[in-house]
């Protein structure tokens, strides 16, 4: 069964100890019953983060925590799950060499990274002639995988990348799993920024059902939110407008839609795809991330 990755996250904080116990019970239950709902503790901020498929999805669970588990929690601002990916091939040839007394660390990895549509991460071992001994190949892969968790550009997870290694070198004494993992991380850092990284954002399929007289207003609302209208279906007195809108622009949309249509329109929203963020928006995201980092520090 295909389970999509979450597209939105929210920090939650229990009000007291009792709420903390109840909250963890609730989270255990919810993550078991719904594979698209996930939670983890952020290692940097120590906040409990819940993740899901939309603002409403998370709202429902927060409300259930209150009602069914008597867990009073305060919520932070929802955050969109941006992702990073690369747009072109870049070669790397990286030597990790460290001598700090005793046996040192040595590993050289060469190869390239390139974008792929076939999966989140593909590792291709093209080493021939034992340039890197077979027992160190899994360490290389592990090193690259570690690098994917936080992109060097804006610290979002990296997807759609193929890493191929085709050459390397080792030292009979100083090479180890640790050395090749570090070499892989270094090689990735070296190549990543040359591979023209971009930020991707979740795009939602939004379907709005509205009386025909408000069709223009509804389309205007979607247009203001960087929405791309796929089509409009005329069904007599009612019409259905279908669009693709970035999730980041959909916060608070239900209130705006209600006020623009005298409360007569309704909408549904589901995750559709990830798409590259326009340059101007990417710059704004970078600024926000920098400000967040500064506040955290």
């Amino acid at each position: 069964m295909y389970v999509p990755d979450p597209v939105i996250s929210l920090a939650i904080e229990p009000k007291d100890n009792k709420a903390q116990i109840n909250m963890s019970k609730a989270l255990q239950r919810f993550t078991k019953e719904d594979p698209t709902f996930r939670c983890h503790v952020d290692a940097e901020t120590n906040e409990t983060i819940i993740e899901g498929m939309g603002e409403l999805h998370l709202d429902v669970y927060v409300e259930r925590m209150r009602r069914e588990y008597d867990a009073e929690v305060t919520t932070g601002n929802p955050r969109v799950a941006y992702r990073e990916t690369i747009t072109q091939r870049a070669d790397f040839n990286y030597i990790h060499k460290k001598q700090t007394g005793g046996s040192g660390q040595y590993g050289r990895i060469a190869g390239y990274i390139e974008p792929t549509a076939e999966g989140d991460f593909i590792f291709d071992n093209q080493i021939t002639g034992g340039a890197i001994p077979t027992q160190y190949i899994p360490a290389c892969e592990k090193g690259f995988r570690q690098s994917l968790a936080k992109g060097p550009k804006l610290e979002f997870p990296i997807t759609g990348i193929k890493v191929a290694i085709n050459d390397g070198a080792y030292h009979a004494v100083d090479s180890s799993d640790m050395a090749f993992q570090a070499a892989a991380r270094g090689a990735f850092r070296e190549a990543y920024l040359r591979a023209k990284p971009v930020v991707h954002e979740p795009i939602m399929k939004v379907v709005i059902e509205s009386p025909t007289e408000f069709q223009g207003a509804v389309m205007g609302l979607l247009n203001q939110r960087r929405g791309m209208i796929v089509g409009a279906q005329d069904e007599g007195h009612m019409c259905v407008v279908e669009a693709q809108v970035p999730l980041g622009e959909m916060f608070g949309f239900s209130t705006v839609l209600r006020s623009a249509t005298q409360g007569k329109a309704q909408f549904t929203m589901e995750f559709a795809l990830y798409r590259q963020v326009p340059q101007s928006i990417a710059e704004k995201i970078a600024e926000d991330m920098a400000a967040k980092k500064k506040n955290a520090a």
Binding site: A117, M228, I229, V230, G231, A232, Q233, D234, E235, G236, Q244, R275
Partner: peptide, 20 residues
């Protein structure tokens, strides 16, 4: 996929019932 994404904004679909 990239090409399709570039082309999508160039299309708009409107549907009507024949009688409408």
């Amino acid at each position: 996929r990239t090409l399709w994404e570039d082309m999508l904004p160039l299309r708009f679909i409107m549907t009507f019932k024949v009688e409408g």
